[in-house]
Design a protein around this nucleic acid. Structure first.
Lengths: 227, 227
DNA sequence: GCTAAATTAATAGTATTACTATCATTTTTT
DNA sequence: AAAAAATGATAGTAATACTATTAATTTAGC
């Protein structure tokens, strides 16, 4: 099965890029190196000029792929959520029991990330760091609403919807499934951030995983027969 | 009691500003107008030049109070959390019953904000909008760790600690009090944000308040006798 | 009420960022 | 081999995020 799925492509909306970065050597080089550079510098310090210097291309060439660095970050986070959704579907497909399915779903979202060899030139571990650190910045701008109508956050919303269905399947009576799901998604990232930078105000640490805490919290909230 | 407390001052660490903005007319003008302008423009579009234009002072005068706009935002969010902590102490002081105290605490953190006449030149409603929208940006920079050691996030951590004690009082057996508290704090803001910009992925709306949902979730998690 | 000290205004200047434009060169397609 | 497309090399602009300097004004101490 693994072998069959090589050279998969996560399809990102063409409104996010000017020229599909997956369609050329330079484009793929931009993706690979922007992930590495974003991880190193953070979003604020990252510039197309620095990226250009790193790949020995003028910044104007980068601008032929992405309008600006915000769109590039948008591309990468969409890729990340698309990838998580993809893993979610595959890994929960064969599980008939709703509670077990939910348990697995939380693992897919919250567990530590490993390199996925099916996708070349994307370092999923570094990308995960970027998502933890910078992904909220794509929402938190004055253009949210317009970007939202343009479908720039589709993958995230789609993933939230899919998870909501799983929660609702596990407990059809539960009233706040949507909020519970956004808490799972946001707090996965937030708790990972706190664990690293503010260890005194979180219970997550070397021995207690984010998955463990969130799973506990979710199942405590739901009313589930067999668990 | 209200009257007694007029002209209170929330003490912000002097490492955050160059000159105390509460100490002069110009300083207070900077605070008042930066809150309004940040609310209008958002953090990214806000500049000291625009602020200067609004208050008819050169930007160089603003730089005498704050090193840069990041520090200004830090000042304002610290003020906000200091204010919430202050309200928390006052409003929960007389409540002996731990569960009720916790209930009240969540209200103080998550309820809609009103103008507090004890603090002139600070519009708490606008400030709350800024906190919902921009406050995460003070953490999410490459300098977090250094800023943290310099005590720039004291108010937030202090508030988290105080809330953790209240949770632990209500249920001494609960294992994940710290994480529960950071979820209350962050999701207060996140759910308010979603309610406004992504209503399809949250249960919070006109009729269902953020306080209600978070309270439900917290109490569902804890093991509490009388409630 | 005067002097000194501190604060603010007015103005100019610099390095960096976030782009856009142009044209030459290389690569790809047919 | 010619045409089309992509990339490189280079230049330029407006805005941002500051720093510096000097003049004018306000405030504080006596």
């Amino acid at each position: 099965m693994e072998a069959l799925l090589t050279n998969l492509k996560i399809r990102i909306s063409d409104k996010i890029y000017i020229k599909d970065p997956e369609s050329s050597d330079l484009g793929r080089k931009i993706l690979k190196n922007s992930i590495e550079l974003l991880d190193e510098l953070g979003f604020e310090q990252f510039t197309f000029k620095k990226l250009g210097a790193r790949i020995n291309s003028p910044e104007s060439s980068v601008y032929r792929y992405f309008e600006n660095k915000h769109k590039l970050l948008l591309y990468l986070t969409n890729w990340y959520w698309g990838w998580i959704e993809y893993k979610l579907v595959i890994e929960t497909y064969g599980i008939p029991e709703p509670a077990l399915k939910l348990k697995k779903a939380i693992e897919v979202v919250a567990d530590e990330v490993n390199i996925d060899n099916r996708f070349d030139h994307i370092n999923e571990i570094l990308l995960h760091n970027i998502v933890v650190f910078d992904s909220r910045k794509i929402f938190l701008t004055k253009d949210v609403d317009q970007e939202n109508t343009e479908g720039h956050f589709m993958f995230y919303k789609q993933l939230a919807k899919r998870l909501t269905d799983i929660v609702q399947d596990a407990d059809p009576e539960y009233k706040y499934a949507k909020t519970l799901v956004t808490i799972i998604l946001e707090e996965t990232m937030n708790q990972q951030f706190l664990k690293k930078h503010f260890p005194t105000i979180t219970d997550c640490n070397e021995n207690v995983s984010v998955t463990e805490v969130l799973t506990h919290m979710v199942f405590n909230n739901l009313n589930i027969n067999n668990e």
